[in-house]
């Protein structure tokens, strides 16, 4: 622990500001709360929003897990875990089941989460309408009035052009029947895990200075048409390491002849599954 900095880097007033914003976010599920994002010692776009949320949540007894692309050992995940080990001295883990706070980029763990766990997402672009409408003043108005026809225009156009909805990650959801929300760039494979999750889900976008939340057991609907329902990715393969046929798979090129293998993106899940299979 580095003694010259406050516990978890941020000063206590800033943490209070963050907690107030998070409470507001929980009170209005899916609503993007503007907050006074601080400049963190990690670059914008590398998880500064998630780091601020985690810093506001952490207490000395927490057990922190950090994943990037589902893996604990990718460099950015390692770096964020190192940061909190250094500035807060909290215990860290790679086991999903053991963590009280999990900060993630681009995945939701395969192991089902519990009520006593909080999942913190790093969000690059909190505004699901941004690619359709670049003006912030306009998108805020659209949210205020639940004026979301434009999003369905995009989905309609996908089906008309490609035969099905061509959004594979960061797939827009409607939270609690009210706010159109970005689930962050998780694959749509993970979207069903958002619906009625027992764990609190918090989202932090540092660069864009927005926080939002999906409280436990909240309805989260992935947008679709009645006759073109939401579908998730499926693989013909199973994980080459643990044999799971239910997890999200990473494709790995193993030689220069283009030979591929498919392995679990969630490294903790893969290890657990493998251990069970061996036992």
């Amino acid at each position: 622990m580095t003694p010259t900095y406050n516990f978890a880097f941020l000063d206590e007033n800033t943490k209070r500001m963050l907690r107030r914003a998070l409470l507001k976010a929980v009170a209005i599920p899916g609503y993007q709360v503007p907050f006074g994002s601080r400049e963190m010692p990690l670059p914008y776009g590398w998880g500064t929003g998630g780091i601020q949320v985690t810093a506001a949540l952490l207490g000395p007894d927490d057990v922190l897990k950090v994943i990037d692309q589902g893996a604990d050992d990718t460099t950015n995940a390692v770096n964020i875990r190192r940061f909190f080990a250094r500035t807060a001295g909290v215990a860290t883990t790679e086991r999903t089941a053991e963590a009280s706070v999990i900060q993630t980029r681009h995945r939701i763990p395969e192991t089902p989460l519990r009520e006593d766990q909080i999942l913190v997402f790093q969000v690059p672009e909190p505004e699901p309408l941004r690619t359709l409408e670049p003006r912030e003043a306009e998108t805020r108005t659209m949210h205020a009035l639940a004026d979301y026809g434009l999003m369905h225009v995009k989905l309609y156009e996908d089906i008309a052009q490609y035969g099905h909805i061509a959004t594979s990650y960061d797939y827009p959801v409607l939270v609690d029947g009210r706010f159109l929300t970005s689930p962050s760039p998780i694959p749509k494979f993970d979207n069903p895990k958002l619906d009625h999750s027992p764990a609190l889900m918090l989202f932090g976008a540092g660069r864009e200075k927005r926080l939002y939340a999906i409280p436990p057991y909240t309805q989260v609907e992935s947008l679709a048409f009645d006759d073109h329902p939401f579908e998730i990715q499926r693989w013909e393969h199973q994980c080459a390491l643990c044999g799971s046929g239910e997890s999200y798979l990473d494709e790995v090129v193993v030689d220069d002849c283009g030979t591929r293998m498919f392995v679990c993106s969630d490294t903790d899940y893969c290890g657990e599954h493998l251990a069970e299979a061996v036992a």
């Binding site: 590398w46 990037d68 692309q69 950015n76 980029r105 681009h106 594979s168 694959p187 993106s265």
Partner: peptide
């Protein structure tokens, strides 16, 4: 940063 997961989806 790694974008394996979203790249895989695409």
């Amino acid at each position: 940063l790694p974008h394996y997961v979203d790249f895989q989806a695409e």
